[in-house]
């Protein structure tokens, strides 16, 4: 089914009746590319241009610095802990919200959006208010020698908060646009609940899930404001990549700062590779057993 649709799409390029006239396609593509060049390509180019200003050796040396390596490690840990919990939540929440109707749904969706609209600085601040020494739990935590804020747990918590809506927000409109006919059909034919989800729903939302994970991951690694408030900025211990970039920049090591920043830009390119491989694999598996739809 999917493959067929892909082929269909490919045919459509040659001016079949479902596509636009050639000049419209060219115009739209040109405008979109122009916009992207202006707002995305130019900044990206600037990052790499400045990262490589002092040459390859300086670039690699900047990445091998121990403080930078520890920042990379902390960032990876944070992302690995954050993404799965938010992925699980996203799928479950999207199921509840998109497949059923109940009163207060818009309200619930808006609550899920909330972390987007909270200023990152404030998202960090709320954890300071709760876990800080002057906050609700601070004295108790100190008495029991538990460190949350200005340590790894605080950074993870703030990141979970900031990346909380991504997967859910990606899936809700997608699953809503698909309706629930296919699932109902599967159930009528005797499939179980989980079976229905994995064999009917999941194949339909897999791109959404992937996008959600990519976004969630990218933001988890790139978050600056919230993490900055709860990190304490201890060199080699509680600095993530974005904080390390800020430090280097403030030390006037502009090339090194952009070198480290370019890692995060490369991340976007790596996710592309992951996406392409996943796309190819899923297509492969779909060809063999035939379509469920």
């Amino acid at each position: 089914m999917n493959v067929a649709a892909n082929m269909n799409r490919t045919n459509g390029k040659n001016g079949s009746n479902v596509s636009e006239p050639a000049w419209v396609r060219v115009l739209l593509t040109a405008v979109a590319l122009g916009f992207i060049a202006l707002f995305l390509l130019l900044p990206l180019g600037a990052v790499f241009a400045q990262a490589l200003e002092k040459g390859w050796d300086a670039y690699l040396a900047a990445l091998k610095e121990p403080d930078t390596l520890s920042a990379i490690r902390l960032t990876l840990i944070t992302a690995v802990l954050c993404v799965p919990v938010n992925l699980l939540f996203g799928i479950i929440a999207a199921w509840a919200i998109a497949k059923f109707s109940f009163p207060g749904k818009s309200f619930l969706v808006t609550l899920i959006d909330l972390p987007f609209s909270v200023s990152p600085v404030v998202s960090g601040l709320i954890y300071v208010l709760i876990f800080g020494l002057q906050g609700w739990l601070g004295p108790w935590l100190q008495a029991h020698d538990i460190k949350i804020i200005f340590a790894v747990p605080g950074i993870v918590l703030a990141t979970v908060f900031v990346t909380f809506p991504f997967v859910a927000r990606e899936l809700i409109p997608l699953m809503e646009s698909q309706g629930r006919d296919e699932e109902e059909a599967a159930l009528t034919l005797g499939a179980g609940g989980l079976q229905t989800f994995f064999r009917v729903t999941f194949p339909n939302i897999k791109w959404g899930v992937l996008y959600g994970v990519i976004l969630c991951n990218a933001r988890a690694m790139g978050e600056f404001g919230a993490v900055s408030v709860v990190s304490g900025h201890v060199r080699g211990a509680t600095n993530t990549i974005p904080l390390q970039v800020e430090i280097l920049y403030n030390e006037y090591s502009y090339a090194a700062a952009f070198a480290v920043a370019s890692l995060l830009a490369l991340l976007a390119l790596v996710t592309l590779a992951v996406k392409s491989v996943a796309e190819w694999k899923i297509n492969q598996t779909l060809v063999t057993p035939g379509s469920e739809r």
Binding site: I36, L40, L41, P43, L44, V47, P120, I214, L215, A218, R219, M221, G222, E223, F224, G225, I241, P242, V245, E246, Y249, A257, F258, A261, L264, A265, L267, A268, L269, T271, L272, K275
Partner: peptide
């Protein structure tokens, strides 16, 4: 892939 850049790039950068 570039579209995700604004997420991946730390806001300060």
């Amino acid at each position: 892939a570039l579209v995700d850049l604004p997420f991946a790039l730390p806001t300060a950068v």
